[in-house]
Amino acid sequence: MKETTKIDTIEAYNQCFGLKTRHPLVSVVDLSQTTQWPDPLRFSYGIYALFLKQVKCGNIQYGRQTYDYQDGTIICFAPGQVAEVTRIPGARPSAYGLLFHPDLIRGTALGQEIKRYSFFSYAANEALHLSEEERQTILDTMRKIDRELDLPFDKHSRRLITAHIGVLLDYCMRFYDRQFATRSEVNNDVIARFEQLLDGYFDTDAPQHEGLPSVRYFADKVCLSPNYFGDLIRKLTGKTASEHIQDRLIDRVKELLLSSGKTMSQIAYELGFQHPQHLSRMFKRLTGMTPNEYRSVG
């Protein structure tokens, strides 16, 4: 078992690579300026981190996935995540990184919105691939943060820095939307597989043993992180993965109400509900009718 280095402060990260700490809660780092590089390196993050790769110099392992970290890609980490980096022998690291502690954004507009940036929980093999123009946009925004860190701190500094970080993350969201749209063939395969898995789940007795399926269940089946899978489904279909699951569930309830003499309790238990009234409430909310009303007019 490789030793894990806990990175819960900006100083802890900078010490690993011999970099200067200009602010205890935020840092823009140029990894080409490192004076040391522990190898192999296994980090447990307690801070937010975003890295823009300049040249190929190593691989990142995140969970069970290994990602060939190519030029012009962005990968992000959030507090609680663990990643392992292995450097190619003789290669000089070249990447820009933004690191910020949760305390920097606590009580700010960015702190209230940070969960919206779901790409922090994407797996390494779901990294953001940038065009040259997009790469330059990211670099320009990082440099604005870097320039703020070189100035004497005043009452405006924190607000300006967090605002620039928010702009940077908004650009990442825009570029991810583009990536979702341009990978139509691969993404359509994921959606088709999701539909097949939905049908297959309710065609078996899995609900009686496993209960209602979660978004994570289907994400695991298609080898994606739950956040990436959920965002992909929502962006390409206009509906969340949870809504797709609910729709398929309600379709199955309608079918059983009209094609069998089973009671609502029997149907609920068959579909994985522990309490029949939960299914009845869901059915009324989504269809505007109670199960008995639907059966009587069907």
Rank of each mutant, 00 (worst) to 15 (best):
K2G: 05
K2M: 11
E3W: 00
I7A: 03
E11M: 03
A12Q: 14
F17K: 12
G18D: 12
L19C: 05
L19V: 06
K20P: 02
K20T: 14
H23P: 12
L31C: 05
S32D: 09
Q33I: 10
Q36C: 13
Q36K: 15
W37L: 09
Y45C: 08
Y45D: 08
G46N: 05
L50W: 01
L52I: 05
G58V: 03
N59D: 14
N59W: 03
N59S: 14
N59H: 13
G63N: 13
Q65T: 14
D68N: 04
T73E: 09
I75F: 12
A78Q: 14
P79N: 06
I88S: 13
G90V: 07
A91V: 08
R92N: 11
P93E: 04
S94D: 13
S94H: 12
H101I: 10
I105G: 11
T108R: 01
A109C: 03
L110T: 10
Q112F: 07
S118I: 11
S118H: 04
F120V: 03
E126M: 10
A127R: 04
L130I: 02
L130A: 02
S131M: 05
M142P: 05
R147F: 02
R147W: 04
E148C: 09
D150A: 13
S157T: 11
I161R: 04
I165G: 10
I165L: 08
L168S: 06
L168F: 07
L169D: 11
L169N: 12
Y171S: 04
C172H: 06
Q179Y: 07
Q179R: 09
A181D: 12
E185Q: 11
V186W: 08
V190I: 15
V190A: 00
E195A: 01
Q196C: 07
Q196D: 11
G200C: 04
T204N: 07
T204S: 14
Q208Y: 10
Q208T: 14
G211C: 09
L212D: 05
R216C: 05
D220F: 03
D220K: 14
D220S: 13
K221H: 11
K235V: 07
K239I: 02
T240W: 00
S242R: 14
H244I: 00
I245Q: 01
R248L: 09
D251S: 07
K254L: 03
E255S: 15
E255G: 03
L258N: 07
S260R: 06
S260Q: 06
G261F: 01
T263L: 04
S265M: 07
A268N: 03
Y269C: 06
Y269A: 04
L271W: 02
G272S: 10
G272W: 03
F273V: 06
Q274S: 15
P276N: 11
Q277Y: 06
L279Y: 06
S280T: 15
K284Y: 08
G288Y: 02
M289G: 04
N292A: 15
V297E: 13
